[in-house]
Amino acid sequence: MELLKLFIRAAFVDNMVFTFFFGMCSYLAVSKTVKTAFGLGLAVIFVLVVTVPVNYLLENYILKDGALAWLGDEYADVDLSFLSFIMFIAVIASIVQLVEMLVEKFSPALYGALGIFLPLIAVNCAILGGSLFMQQKNFPSIGHATVYGFGSGFGWFIAIVLLAAIREKIKYSHVPAPLRGVGMAFILTGLMGLAFLGFLGFNI
């Protein structure tokens, strides 16, 4: 039950796109058609589910203040947390590479769908953002971290598919010329963000 609450909170209330603007660059660039948006959304879920738990282990067993205590008493007061940015991004970049190779080997169909998006994801702020928030939230177990990763990925997925659907339709409307393209996408995201603010009232 607690995990379900965490999922809903991560996906809707603290939506990555509308509340924190994470991953906006690819969000705006890849949302022109529903099909590609769907592919990128899936890839983001996938990578978040893998990287957040891995970084959780890294944070709790290596980086955090006193995390090295399992090595012996003389390491108990080592605090490596200033290294977390560089470690997280290295983990993310290498996992993305690894995932890309694995997917290519075992599921060529999925690779065809996700392939071009996977390298892009290493520099998507939603991924690093997921890990940094995980670090701030101090989850009690790796299960919580995984659910959090899945929830935030799912929220991002919903957001990009919704925007792509609207942008496909809006091509046929009369948008003022200077606003065409990016400008309109900004306004749409703003309005969708206002709608998503309704979830703030959820007391979970």
């Binding site: 509308f18 003022p176 200077p178 400008g183 900004f186 995201t189 703003g190 963000g193 603010l197």
Partner: peptide, 16 residues
């Protein structure tokens, strides 16, 4: 948060 999106959109509008 959403208001900054709309402000940037207005900026783009004026600029373009």
């Amino acid at each position: 948060p959403p208001s900054s999106l709309i402000l940037v959109a207005l900026y783009i509008w004026i600029q373009k």
